[in-house]
Simulated scan of single mutants.
Amino acid sequence: MLEAGVTIEKALAWARTILTENQISDDGVHDSAAIDSKVLLCAALGCEQVYLHTWPDKVPNKTQIQTFQQMIEKRILGYPVAYIIGFKDFWSLRLAVSEATLIPRPETELLVELALNLALPNTSQVLDLGTGTGAIALALASEQSKWSVTGLDKSHDAVNLAKKNGKDNGLPEVEFIQSNWFSSLSSEKKFELIVTNPPYIETDDYHLKMGDVRFEPASALTSGEDGLDDIRFIIHESVNFLVKGGWLLIEHGNRQGDRIADLLVSKGFSNVKIEYDLNEHARVTMGQFI
């Protein structure tokens, strides 16, 4: 327990030690115990991280210390940092998160980059399937103000959260609709671009019992024995909602690229290619409906 009068520097050292002792620590690339400690202390203090480095001898008040301790206790239990502090930064946006949605991840920014690099009309109709927090839809809209962007999610709570994130980030024009994939769309609706980060984990994958995903909604994570049930459905149905020359971009697991590419080709997509993230993992497979 932290004592009254502890400085920022000592509070961080305490948190890092206790998180490390509870194996909330180094992932082999980043010292996550130190990173988590700083993020949580900033949330408790209501400050940016530069404040911690500038004023290490500052003494937080009693309420701030109690809040910080409670946050660390939740982190020890495995609660994701984003759920503890209530938000996650993605692209240039700060997004509210809840346990009704997946936490936006940096890897998904590749999907946004690829979409923005396509030669699409200035007034394109864009669809984000399984929008969750609205991360992908809002990131695209923030960069292409003339695109008409729609996000769909079967979760009522997710749709409400995405709408809030749109308003909070100055993007209220992005439309969010409750829909089980394409079910709420008119059969006449067509899009130049469909993007999706759907469930793609195998239902018996052991990773589901590890890390942050233990606390995230299983319905947004798993999709059948091979993890491809939803992706098969999306590929099959997307041709009914794409214009000729429109693109479908799918984020997926790092061992699924070849199978998804085959599914796209078998459905008549051209220019099919697999794109890799910064860790050189297959992350997005895309194809053009010709």
Rank of each mutant, 00 (worst) to 15 (best):
E21L: 12
A82L: 07
L263T: 05
P80G: 01
W247M: 02
D26Y: 14
I84S: 08
G211R: 03
G5A: 04
S124D: 05
A82S: 12
S98E: 04
L116F: 13
T17M: 12
I8C: 10
I235R: 02
V29D: 07
S184N: 07
E175F: 02
V39M: 13
E109H: 04
K88L: 08
V174Y: 11
S186C: 01
G46L: 08
I290S: 13
E173H: 15
V272R: 01
M1T: 10
E48I: 06
I260V: 09
T222E: 05
H281I: 08
K88C: 06
Q49M: 08
D226H: 10
Q49D: 15
K62Q: 14
Q144W: 06
L118A: 03
G151R: 07
E280Y: 14
V97D: 12
W147A: 03
I65A: 13
Y79K: 13
N165F: 03
A82R: 00
I8K: 02
A162N: 09
L161H: 11
I274V: 07
N254C: 13
S32N: 15
I235P: 07
D157W: 05
P121W: 08
K244L: 10
E109F: 04
A220W: 11
D212L: 01
H281L: 15
V272T: 11
K209S: 13
K88F: 06
A33Q: 04
W147G: 01
I18P: 09
S124P: 03
K190D: 07
P172M: 04
T7K: 08
A100I: 02
N160L: 14
F87E: 15
S98L: 01
H252E: 01
I24W: 03
H281D: 10
L95V: 06
A282Q: 14
F241W: 08
T196L: 00
S187E: 14
D262R: 11
G257L: 05
L278R: 07
G245W: 01
E202T: 09
D157R: 08
R16M: 07
E113H: 02
E73N: 12
W247F: 14
H156M: 05
Q69A: 06
R214H: 11
S32G: 00
W181C: 01
G132Q: 10
H252K: 00
E202F: 00
S270E: 15
A44I: 07
L193Y: 00
E99M: 05
A282W: 05
G78E: 11
D128M: 10
V149K: 06
L127R: 09
A11L: 12
G28P: 12
P217E: 09
I194A: 01
L248T: 04
K273G: 09
K154F: 15
S183Y: 03
K74Q: 15
N122F: 02
P106N: 05
L263F: 13
N160T: 15
L45G: 10
E113F: 00
I234E: 03
F233N: 08
V272G: 08
E73A: 15
T101C: 10
M210Y: 14
